[in-house]
Design a protein around this nucleic acid. Structure first.
Lengths: 197, 197
DNA sequence: TTACACATACCGACTGGTTAGTCTGGCTGT
DNA sequence: ACAGCCAGACTAACCAGTCGGTATGTGTAA
């Protein structure tokens, strides 16, 4: 039996990534020592450096996972067969729910970019930009069709909405008065209302 | 002649605070050593610890300054003699312009809260809450008067707007296609449009 | 006016503690 | 016996904060 799953059923790399995600979100990247991570994962440094090249690498994996998931979900909603208002609303609400479901990821995402090495940072920015552009395309489509106002450049509208998504990790607390879905519906509604012609 | 101003006309505490603000924004709090700060300010550690109790204290000063300035500006706009739509629009646009004019502050503000000591953190949160509530009161006033939609709770609307304000430090770059005032007008416009009944 | 005391402003070497990453070696299944 | 998997002691670097010391200005009293 390989050691990769001893302790519980989760493979060691996963356990390390989960522990790192939680700790990075709770304490910040710099305040989290590699020692803490391996202890939380129930292994030692040898294991960590066997699977990951550096502490920085671990952080990069968090970004890669978030970006992959969000891009897939956006593609799903944007590619549906429905009026653009509905596709935008669904996509906008979905990213809110997904973000709330993974608040730790969101916390890290917008707080720790500058801890990535320059080339990893660049890579993450490029990926994020693709996401941004996909979202913007949806808005521009609606603007061309005349169902969305053209008063504000689509770029700015995207930043407006994602600002609020980003901000979720600052104020949303599970157990608050609103469920993730209710928050998502409200925020998507605000976006669509702002876009009314 | 006291040493407080030798070198140039700026007093040493100011020079230290300016250097710290810039470096914290550029590299993050943990990545900035006290040595770097004192070198950038043209003094030594002795001077820093003469005026400030700790590195953490320096960060706290940044927060205190931002909170004081923003609260004063909000009070000014909210207290004017004008319809609530205009007061809200002006306040919403002003915070955008002020934030862009001090992007370093904004960068630090939302990225470094967790680097403050627990009691300083609590203090900052309390101050920030007062600000949030003042802004919310404006929206609620408009909702009572019937000029703003009540579809979304005022609290959420505030977080929606300030999300986009925080986000500015992530995407806005001086020299971009839009002036600070143009960005502010657009973002205030989006807010007001979302609030149309 | 001079002399002495005292405070403020600052210098910079030093200390105690922490950290990311390395490396040697052992275990386990095939 | 070989290869992937991992343990844990070790190292080299770094950093916040301290502390004894120096310089300059200000008040006071002879």
């Amino acid at each position: 039996m390989p050691r990769t799953t001893d302790g519980d059923g989760t493979p060691v790399p996963q356990r390390l990534l989960n522990a790192a995600t939680r700790l990075f979100a709770e304490q910040g990247y710099d305040r989290t020592s590699v020692q803490e991570i391996v202890e939380a994962a129930g292994v030692t440094k040898g294991a960590l450096y066997h699977y990951f090249g550096s502490k920085d690498d671990l952080l990069h994996e968090v970004y890669a996972r978030v970006l992959r998931v969000q891009q897939e979900r956006l593609d799903h909603f944007a590619g549906m067969d429905a009026p653009v208002e509905k596709r935008l609303r669904d996509a906008a609400a979905d990213v809110v729910v997904t973000t709330i479901d993974n608040l730790d990821d969101a916390m890290i995402f917008f707080r720790s970019m500058h801890h990535l090495s320059p080339e990893k940072n660049k890579q993450v920015r490029a990926e994020r930009r693709r996401y941004h552009e996909r979202f913007r395309a949806l808005i521009e489509e609606g603007q061309r069709e005349g169902v969305f106002s053209t008063a504000t450049p689509a770029d700015l509208v995207v930043d407006y909405h994602f600002g609020s998504v980003h901000h979720l990790s600052t104020w949303y607390r599970p157990g608050g008065p609103l469920t993730p879905q209710q928050v998502a519906d409200h925020l998507a509604d605000l976006l669509l209302r702002a876009l009314r012609p």
